[in-house]
Design a protein around this nucleic acid. Sequence first.
DNA 1: CTAGTTATGTACCGAACGGTATATAACATT
DNA 2: AATGTTATATACCGTTCGGTACATAACTAG
Lengths: 208, 208
Amino acid sequence: MARPRGFCEEEALDKALDVFWRHGYEGASLAVLTEAMGINRPSLYATFGNKEELFRKALDRYISVKNAVFDEALAEPTGRDVVRHLLRKAAEMMTEPGHPVGCLAVQGAISCSDESEPVRQELIRIRRGHEDQIRKRFAEEQAAGRLPDGTTPEDLAMLLATIANGMSIQASTGATREQLLTVAENAARAWPQVSNDGSDAARNTAAE
Amino acid sequence: MARPRGFCEEEALDKALDVFWRHGYEGASLAVLTEAMGINRPSLYATFGNKEELFRKALDRYISVKNAVFDEALAEPTGRDVVRHLLRKAAEMMTEPGHPVGCLAVQGAISCSDESEPVRQELIRIRRGHEDQIRKRFAEEQAAGRLPDGTTPEDLAMLLATIANGMSIQASTGATREQLLTVAENAARAWPQVSNDGSDAARNTAAE
DNA sequence: CTAGTTATGTACCGAACGGTATATAACATT
DNA sequence: AATGTTATATACCGTTCGGTACATAACTAG
């Protein structure tokens, strides 16, 4: 071996993650990244490849943490519990003190120049993957007879993912953690559910 | 007068709107803009000021169209009708053939470099304004005794805005118009509503 | 201490960015 | 037709972008 590197790779990656999270992939310049990571360009390129690879590695770290929480939520006993757990955790993760607000998978590259299209597609893949995990969980509910008539796992998964995505925008708009938790609770309460008398209640209340 | 301009200002603005809508404020380069608008840089600067002013003018056009639809939705008789109308129209406007998918107010500058912060703030102002209009409409519902106990106009407005924002991300993720319309319908059906027997039903079904 | 290896710091690369100076072309007015 | 005025086309400005060549510093192995 020779001269050892003068910085911690994981710490630097976390700093990069913070910058990408805050400014998005394209909005994060090499100047800001190296400044935040406390290293210079050649060290960055030697260690992480290039800007895109750096982003993907930072994204991996972000997603792996997120997936653990995700799996917890999916383990809840009922559909409504899954919804509540997932949206609560989303609200918390999107308003974590010391971190940028919102979700990297949503804000990272929602619109960009053609040059960054691969990154945008990668985030799309991730969002679709999450929705698909939810769908599978709701399919279990359906198999257990706990989905109201007229609802499908696909539709409910898309609705849930829509709300979670929307929370990211709301966080970016300035919504507080408390506000997002209220959104989560209200969504969970209103969630379509089979009533215990056996009737379905995809439609809330009988008032029509 | 002297030499007349060789292009239609409104047509050019619509072309610019399309580019900003598709690529976001920062992702839209002058090269792409002028190419799409069919004019060259000096004409653009003489007519529209600079990139930021061009964006704001394109945004004005976009928002004015949107506001008309918005007002229609708010005129619906009940809260649930407002929700359904608004989300349906949102689904349609976010998947209009011949236009970029999603909503410019969401995708235009959700994350960007510090340089574009004013534009980002402007979009935040617009999103907040929309949510506030919804809140006022729900406040009317509350005054009429049509809001379930435990719900507030603020909370419901934020929930609705969250879903609408989320639909923009879903459109960007590749959701079809039909899928978004299903999201809209499911959200409207589940919407918290006072039942006709006088009891409240912020919580969907009695199954707990 | 020397040699070999790897990381760092500086200074730079070509390309693309938003924006503009300047010359010319196209019109209205007289 | 001559003149004044405005729009267009070209070619360029300084700056920033992502990325790298190169010299030097810091370490290990012998």
